[in-house]
Design a protein around this nucleic acid. Structure first.
Length: 113
DNA sequence: ATAATGACTTTCA
DNA sequence: TTGAAAGCCATTA
Protein backbone atom coordinates (compact mmCIF):
# COMPACT_ATOMS: atom_id res chain seq x y z
CA UNK A 1 0.00 0.00 0.00
CA UNK A 2 2.93 2.29 -0.36
CA UNK A 3 1.50 5.16 -2.31
CA UNK A 4 4.74 6.99 -2.94
CA UNK A 5 3.64 9.52 -0.43
CA UNK A 6 7.25 9.83 0.50
CA UNK A 7 8.34 11.87 -2.44
CA UNK A 8 7.67 15.16 -0.72
CA UNK A 9 8.86 13.78 2.55
CA UNK A 10 12.09 12.66 0.99
CA UNK A 11 12.77 16.13 -0.27
CA UNK A 12 12.02 17.57 3.09
CA UNK A 13 14.32 15.15 4.82
CA UNK A 14 17.05 15.91 2.33
CA UNK A 15 16.73 19.60 3.05
CA UNK A 16 16.84 19.03 6.77
CA UNK A 17 19.97 16.98 6.42
CA UNK A 18 21.69 19.98 4.93
CA UNK A 19 21.39 21.96 8.11
CA UNK A 20 24.85 22.20 9.62
CA UNK A 21 25.46 21.03 13.14
CA UNK A 22 24.98 23.75 15.71
CA UNK A 23 22.60 25.65 13.46
CA UNK A 24 18.84 25.72 13.10
CA UNK A 25 16.41 26.40 10.26
CA UNK A 26 12.73 27.27 10.27
CA UNK A 27 9.95 25.13 8.88
CA UNK A 28 9.24 27.67 6.20
CA UNK A 29 12.86 27.73 5.19
CA UNK A 30 12.95 23.98 4.83
CA UNK A 31 9.72 23.95 2.89
CA UNK A 32 11.12 26.41 0.42
CA UNK A 33 14.36 24.51 0.12
CA UNK A 34 12.48 21.31 -0.49
CA UNK A 35 10.63 22.92 -3.33
CA UNK A 36 7.40 23.25 -1.39
CA UNK A 37 7.09 26.97 -0.75
CA UNK A 38 4.41 27.93 1.70
CA UNK A 39 3.97 24.42 2.98
CA UNK A 40 5.64 24.84 6.32
CA UNK A 41 2.98 22.75 7.96
CA UNK A 42 3.78 19.88 5.71
CA UNK A 43 7.34 20.00 6.92
CA UNK A 44 6.09 19.61 10.44
CA UNK A 45 4.06 16.64 9.34
CA UNK A 46 6.96 15.00 7.62
CA UNK A 47 9.14 15.37 10.67
CA UNK A 48 6.44 14.08 12.91
CA UNK A 49 6.37 10.90 10.88
CA UNK A 50 10.00 10.16 11.64
CA UNK A 51 10.97 7.30 13.87
CA UNK A 52 13.23 7.82 16.82
CA UNK A 53 16.09 6.09 15.08
CA UNK A 54 16.50 8.40 12.13
CA UNK A 55 19.44 9.99 10.41
CA UNK A 56 17.49 13.19 9.91
CA UNK A 57 18.53 15.95 12.30
CA UNK A 58 14.96 16.93 13.02
CA UNK A 59 15.97 18.79 16.13
CA UNK A 60 17.48 21.54 14.00
CA UNK A 61 14.10 22.66 12.75
CA UNK A 62 12.28 25.29 14.77
CA UNK A 63 9.47 27.73 14.09
CA UNK A 64 9.78 31.26 12.76
CA UNK A 65 9.98 32.70 16.25
CA UNK A 66 13.07 30.66 16.97
CA UNK A 67 11.19 28.53 19.44
CA UNK A 68 10.51 24.84 19.68
CA UNK A 69 7.09 23.98 18.36
CA UNK A 70 6.84 20.59 19.96
CA UNK A 71 5.03 20.48 23.25
CA UNK A 72 7.49 19.86 26.07
CA UNK A 73 5.76 16.63 26.90
CA UNK A 74 5.87 15.26 23.39
CA UNK A 75 9.53 15.71 22.70
CA UNK A 76 10.17 19.40 23.16
CA UNK A 77 12.51 18.80 26.03
CA UNK A 78 14.43 16.22 24.06
CA UNK A 79 14.82 18.61 21.17
CA UNK A 80 16.15 21.33 23.37
CA UNK A 81 18.65 19.03 24.97
CA UNK A 82 19.86 17.80 21.62
CA UNK A 83 20.34 21.34 20.40
CA UNK A 84 22.12 22.50 23.49
CA UNK A 85 24.41 19.57 23.04
CA UNK A 86 25.31 20.97 19.63
CA UNK A 87 26.07 24.34 21.10
CA UNK A 88 22.80 26.10 20.37
CA UNK A 89 21.84 28.43 23.18
CA UNK A 90 18.37 29.33 24.34
CA UNK A 91 17.42 32.58 25.98
CA UNK A 92 15.46 32.90 29.19
CA UNK A 93 12.24 32.57 27.27
CA UNK A 94 13.22 29.36 25.59
CA UNK A 95 13.93 30.90 22.24
CA UNK A 96 16.92 30.70 19.97
CA UNK A 97 18.53 33.79 18.48
CA UNK A 98 18.05 33.01 14.82
CA UNK A 99 20.32 35.89 14.05
CA UNK A 100 23.13 33.93 15.61
CA UNK A 101 22.21 30.29 15.15
CA UNK A 102 19.95 30.49 12.16
CA UNK A 103 21.31 28.62 9.17
CA UNK A 104 21.90 30.66 6.08
CA UNK A 105 21.68 28.37 3.10
CA UNK A 106 24.24 29.36 0.59
CA UNK A 107 22.58 32.34 -0.70
CA UNK A 108 24.19 35.47 -1.85
CA UNK A 109 24.56 37.33 1.34
CA UNK A 110 24.49 40.62 -0.32
CA UNK A 111 26.61 42.72 1.88
CA UNK A 112 26.03 46.30 1.25
CA UNK A 113 28.59 48.86 1.99
C1' DA B 1 -17.78 12.72 0.57
C1' DT B 2 -17.05 16.76 4.43
C1' DA B 3 -14.93 18.46 8.77
C1' DA B 4 -11.43 18.88 12.12
C1' DT B 5 -6.41 18.88 13.31
C1' DG B 6 -1.77 20.13 13.29
C1' DA B 7 6.20 19.79 15.12
C1' DC B 8 3.69 26.61 10.65
C1' DT B 9 3.99 31.55 8.52
C1' DT B 10 2.78 36.13 7.50
C1' DT B 11 0.27 40.21 8.05
C1' DC B 12 -1.99 43.64 10.57
C1' DA B 13 -3.56 45.93 14.91
C1' DT C 1 6.74 43.52 21.82
C1' DT C 2 2.39 40.35 21.71
C1' DG C 3 -1.77 38.41 19.88
C1' DA C 4 -5.53 37.46 16.68
C1' DA C 5 -6.90 36.16 11.84
C1' DA C 6 -6.23 34.25 7.60
C1' DG C 7 -3.67 31.18 4.51
C1' DC C 8 -1.79 26.35 3.38
C1' DC C 9 -2.36 21.38 2.75
C1' DA C 10 -1.69 16.34 4.00
C1' DT C 11 -3.57 13.23 7.38
C1' DT C 12 -7.57 11.54 10.36
C1' DA C 13 -12.02 10.89 11.87
Amino acid sequence: MPRRESDSYTRIYAAVKRIPRGRVATYGQIAKLAGLPGQARQVGYALHALRSATAVPWQRVVNAAGAISLRPMTGGVTQRILLEKEGVRFDARGRIALRTFGWRPRRVTRLRA
